[in-house]
């Protein structure tokens, strides 16, 4: 998916309720190159209205090997973001929003790329 996004000069930013430390671990573990943002106080999540109250989630495991967790931590109830994708054009205008009403399912590559093509292929 990265080449298609790069073709249209779309950069990716991902935000979650994780703390800076958890985000850094996640980024290192999965070898991510996109910008990951930490919003542990849920300020941005609430600003955008994508808050999911008190759901059972899994934290990063505390059992570490070389700074990388060996598995997920125990389940606990916490407030987190509803999986949501927003596509923003160069003028800062939101051109597409995709939100999961079933958190198990994510935006598919096809849907995201379709939105990118629709939004940007005519002008670029």
């Amino acid at each position: 998916m990265r080449p298609a996004l790069a073709k249209h000069a779309v950069s990716v930013i991902a935000l979650s309720k994780d703390t800076v430390d958890e985000v850094a671990i996640h980024k290192q573990r999965d070898g991510l190159t996109l910008t990951l943002l930490a919003d542990p106080e849920l300020e941005v999540i609430r600003q955008y209205g994508v808050e999911h109250h008190k759901v059972l989630g899994f934290s990063t495991g505390s059992l570490m090997l070389g700074g990388i967790p060996l598995g997920p931590g125990g389940p606990s109830f916490k407030t987190m973001a509803i999986p949501t994708s927003l596509l923003v054009d160069e003028d800062g205008r939101i051109v597409w929003i995709d939100q999961a009403d079933d958190y198990r399912l994510r935006s598919s590559n096809g849907r995201v790329l379709g939105a990118v093509e629709t939004a940007f292929s005519s002008e670029s």
Partner: peptide
């Protein structure tokens, strides 16, 4: 599995609300 959609405070056509956050 269902998420409480409908509280979304932004819409298509809006200017992205500004925010600051901490990176990894």
């Amino acid at each position: 599995r269902k998420t409480p959609v409908g509280d979304l405070k932004v819409g298509v056509g809006d200017i992205l609300p500004g925010f600051t956050a901490t990176t990894s």
